[in-house]
Amino acid sequence: MNRKTPSVTLAAVVALAVLGYAWASEPLKVNSRTLAGMKLAVPSNAGEREYLGLSGQGTFTMPEISTDVLIVEVFSMYCPICQATAEETNKLHELIERDPALRGKVKLIGVGIGNTPFEVNMFRKKFHVAFPLFADDNSAIREAFSEPVRTPTFIIVELKGKKKLRVLSTSVGKFDDAEAFLKAVTGAAIRK
């Protein structure tokens, strides 16, 4: 035994304890293939179409969005935590758009689970949301979830070509610091 052993042992115990907790609570899984197949309405707003790199009308799927990494916020107009998170998610969007290294490579959308376009629009107006929000009136996105959907859930996705995507990580609940969240997102993307 050398002198380093106690600290290494402690680190190992802490690491195992935390990992054990993470495994025991069975973290949410979001199925990449189901998410990739989900159809969303092409925005009627030209600015939003440009942001997403889409053209035309009708529907599209997430892999068609021109970006490397996509952050999907699953929210509801009716969810008080989503309302309380709106300011930070707006800030997250601004941080991405202001950073030349991230702009165009990391994009953010919201999917309003169980919400009609009217309801999504109410949320957009109330909180001045500048990134695209989509209505998911039939709650189709829940098909991709391994458990009942809790809002907000943030899904970090790596896009692979025009048809595939890979879910890198998920985060359930409010985040308090957009900068820290963004660092975690870009970290996850870099470590992929």
Binding site: R150, V172, G173, F181
Partner: peptide, 12 residues
């Protein structure tokens, strides 16, 4: 780092 605010614990 992926759960900066405690993740799932925040959900009501």
């Amino acid at each position: 780092s992926l759960f900066p605010s405690g993740g799932r614990a925040e959900v009501r």
